[in-house]
Nucleic acid binder design. Structure first.
Lengths: 106, 106
DNA sequence: AAAACAAGCAACTTTTTGGTTGCATATTTT
DNA sequence: AAAATATGCAACCAAAAAGTTGCTTGTTTT
């Protein structure tokens, strides 16, 4: 299909998914699907789908406990984004950042 | 419409756009639309569209010179992504985000 | 055992996105 | 001035994504 960094970027490119992810990161404990859905105005299935795509890229881990499924955020995949950006950070301070800085540094 | 960070993330979530952006960042000078298109197998209009969305979020600056339009990469917008991620970097080292806390608590 | 609850699956609709082709316009070049 | 070049614009198409609703399955609770 597509490469990993693309999938991760697509996952966080959606505002609802960023909200869900954020809610999970700041949560003091794992949240069940229903608990998460309760925080959004859209349908349960809509939220569930978003959680699923987050899970697929590893930004959310899910553990089943009885009839409930508890979600936890995992920031690890973001490292790949960070890694991708690292190259461009070299150009942070060049006014319009093109090669100059890069050549100097290498 | 949508907020800025969302637009920037969507822009870089597409692999072709990341390629175009990268080509511009490492270019020694501004590249014309045709020069950029030459590097891709898809149609000129396809590439042009991608360049346009990159321009809309500020990742590419364009200057017209006669009948040509020259493109330069601008990494600045990526700072917003970096900024967004900063919050989550705090959790970089918790093995699985807050899973530890969760397991301990049960 | 029946009712209530948590959640998944599947089908379907709408919108967005990635990509195409054809045509128009302005600028060079010959 | 005619031909060639660089590009934009608009319409169109196909595939993917976002979101909905209805039904099913398993687990608790009463």
């Amino acid at each position: 299909m597509q490469d990993n960094i693309t999938k991760i970027l697509k996952a966080i490119a959606d505002p609802t998914r960023r909200e869900i992810f954020h809610a999970l990161v700041i949560a003091t404990s794992a949240l069940s699907i229903t608990q998460i859905c309760g925080q959004f105005s859209m349908s349960r299935q809509g939220v569930t789908k978003h959680i699923k795509t987050l899970e697929e890229v590893g930004l959310v881990d899910i553990t089943t406990k009885g009839r409930e499924r508890f979600c936890l955020a995992d920031v690890q995949p973001l490292k790949q984004v960070s890694e991708w950006m690292k190259f461009y950070e070299k150009f942070w301070d060049g006014a319009l950042g093109n090669l100059g800085t890069y050549l100097d540094a290498n």
